[in-house]
Design a protein around this nucleic acid. Structure first.
Lengths: 166, 166
DNA sequence: TTCTATTAGATTGTGTACAATTGAATTGTA
DNA sequence: TACAATTCAATTGTACACAATCTAATAGAA
């Protein structure tokens, strides 16, 4: 990726408020904030792939399992709120997890519209193998503890800002 | 998104080197670094959509046009290096841009394997309308100048680290 | 209570992403 | 110079991601 000279080279943030001096070009890739975000997300997920392949999970299936390891059972809607995914994405992901035997899907008796997704025994026990995934990933991301912490908190602030009140 | 308490709550970074005290759980979504990255990338791109719709561009087409506004003409391989995309993704994107009249595709005379993608007059002049996109986006991202700059440089460091050497 | 509005999830259609393969062109080497 | 290896782009197959639509179920209001 390109080097960066100064803080105002982030057009989504600065183009409106900064005085546009000589050569500053808000449509250059190197001046974007979203583009490296998009590249990093893709590349980190690509680094997950070999480790997730060992569990026969995709990244989307992995984060779905994480939500279920924490909550045991969730509706499609509940999963969507946690993962920021809609039913168009989740329905096939969950059917795939069901086929692998990690979850079961069943209509709620209280409200027939609701589909509850629940971990099976096999899905629960996958947790122990999955514990190796973050361990292995940690060696792929060469950021200092401070940088990682800073990145973490800025991303959470940004995510809150972008996803609030839809 | 969930609140964060302390810097070690980033398992991809910390799980290998940190002493695992009592309840720290590396497989919780709130303890991931990749998950908010993935969510932010998706959500920022979603915010682009209404502005890009006005230009009849998708985000992938938009970054492709950015590369071409800067370089005028590039091979598929050249575009792939800049955008971190492979031919399987780029071929349909470029055919779509060709259909809209923004680029032309032609085999290189020097090397018939190479396809050069070149801006048309119409593609070039789209630049002027596209200048409004970063202006409009700047009001969607509520980060301070300092946070944006910090995010920018950490993401570039991470991208360099993830994409170096193929 | 009946009719309307809302909600949950599934489906459809479009557009990425990427791994793996293919085929044509070029390069490197014996 | 042949011929094996490499390179470039296209194609194929799988898996998202989301907008828009659809259907069934539930809730709300007259």
């Amino acid at each position: 990726m390109q080097p960066v000279n100064c803080i105002r080279d982030c057009p989504e943030i600065f183009s409106a408020e900064t005085n546009m001096t000589e050569t500053f070009n808000p449509l250059k890739l190197e001046n974007q904030l979203c583009f490296p975000l998009y590249v990093c997300a893709k590349e980190v997920i690509r680094r997950y792939k070999p480790f997730l392949d060992e569990l026969d999970l995709t990244y989307t299936q992995y984060i779905t399992m994480m939500a279920l390891w924490e909550h045991r059972s969730l509706s499609i809607k509940g999963l969507g709120k946690i993962l920021f995914l809609d039913s168009g994405t989740l329905t096939p992901v969950i059917k795939s997890l069901e086929k692998k035997g990690y979850v079961i899907r069943e209509r709620s008796k209280d409200d027939e519209r609701v589909v509850n997704v629940t971990l099976t025994e096999q899905g629960s026990s996958l947790y122990n193998e999955a514990l190796q995934v973050p361990v292995k990933m940690s060696s792929c991301i060469e950021l200092s503890a401070e940088e990682a912490g800073t990145l973490y908190s800025i991303l959470h602030k940004l995510a809150d800002n972008l996803t609030e009140e839809n």
